[in-house]
Write a protein that binds this DNA or RNA. Structure first.
Lengths: 221, 221
DNA sequence: CTTGAAATTGAACATTTGTTCAAACTATTC
DNA sequence: GAATAGTTTGAACAAATGTTCAATTTCAAG
């Protein structure tokens, strides 16, 4: 789950000396453990919100003591930021692949919706995106919002393309993209992993419904 | 914004004596002030989340000191609960009116969506419903969830009726109702009061789009 | 077995924040 | 203008929680 590029398991040391004036910890330390922490944190943030979840809970779920988290992350906010970065990495990869595909707009939109649902439900374990933004540092917030906007615009462009090509009825692409994203982002609020609906079913039915919304209504005679 | 029935402005005293063992405050005190507090709290909860918003902030926005809030509410959680109750009052009133209307399903669904958007945007000032549920007392949570379910089921029934009558394509009413509710509930996340889109426009365009999604797709030859 | 760095812990600290309550203030009524 | 009930404040407290760090443990390499 790390944003860092290197994923070597034998953790390398960043200059064994003096720990950056005592403050910042080794950013490359234990990539695998970092991932575990992010998973646990994401689950806690989803369930209780950023402020509602304590670092002690996040650590306890991994049978750790909270102090140990500060070996891997500067502070709680950095954990939240890393969660966002990971989610956005996935989402933007996804958008990129779809844009490359060269499919017609409705097929692109379908791919986007289906993959989006799967990302949220299977990969992120129901972590709604764009949550707890207010808890981010101004600098981090700026980064996250910029990347989120890039994703939003990507979805919007697919819709615009569909309208231009005549596949979709005309309308406000921005407003409608928000409707699509909202329907999907809301899924974690009601999704029950023990329930009957699989993520595949949800993805398909949502795609059917949300794409049908763009079709031109039959002309009234 | 109070759930309490009595709304007299001249605040009556509940037995002038000894304040309920010191704990519970006068539940009828200053109805108008209660409303102000709920508005301020709703705004803070929306922006910062339940745990992120402090009672001091809620009070400061009203030029009060935080201690004073405890004259009107037992504690912070009760404020959150009252916000939920108020929202649900509005939503269930709305559902009731629509169910009474006797209109065909698509017209009912339109009414429901339009009124829902207006309630969230105009009346609740962008307070997304069903937020911060985890912060509620078990007893309060039970109440809120029960009422929320009633609303969910109402929407679902309208959709089912549309399918039965042949106005809508067949599908999973539960899943699709979640799509509709999600799209609307997500609005506060992106809505900008200073932006170009009025709540009326949003309501109309969302209704158009979300209802079109239920139409039967043209049979492929 | 020794060594040394990485990883983990336990305890302490500084803040923050929800809550309480006696005292002070306001306003209405007789 | 007292008297009284209603309202507000200021100060204090207790609990929770993010963060630090020296001491300890783990563990792989020489």
């Amino acid at each position: 789950m790390p944003t860092a590029p290197s994923t070597r398991s034998s953790a390398p040391a960043r200059r064994g000396r003096r720990r950056h004036r005592g403050r910042p910890r080794n950013p490359d330390a234990g990539a695998a453990t970092r991932i575990e922490i992010l998973k646990s944190a994401a689950a806690a943030f989803r369930r209780l919100g950023y402020h509602g979840a304590t670092v002690e809970q996040i650590a306890a779920a991994l049978r750790m003591k909270k102090g140990n988290l500060y070996y891997y992350f500067r502070n709680k906010e950095e954990i939240l930021f890393a969660c966002h970065q990971y989610s956005l990495d996935r989402l933007l990869e996804l958008l990129d692949a779809v844009e490359r595909s060269g499919l017609p707009a409705d097929a692109q939109l379908r791919q986007l919706i289906v993959a989006f649902v799967h990302t949220i439900l299977d990969e992120l374990h129901g972590t709604a995106l764009f949550l707890d933004l207010e808890a981010l540092t101004p600098a981090h917030l700026k980064l996250v919002v910029a990347r989120r906007d890039r994703f939003d615009r990507g979805v919007r462009q697919v819709i615009e393309e569909g309208m231009r090509a005549g596949e979709f009825a005309h309308g406000d692409p921005k407003l409608l993209s928000f409707a699509v994203l909202g329907a999907v982002n809301w899924i974690p609020r009601w999704f029950n992993p023990a329930g009957t609906a699989s993520s595949q079913e949800i993805a398909d039915r949502f795609a059917d419904y949300l794409i049908q919304g763009f079709r031109r209504p039959p002309l009234k005679a």
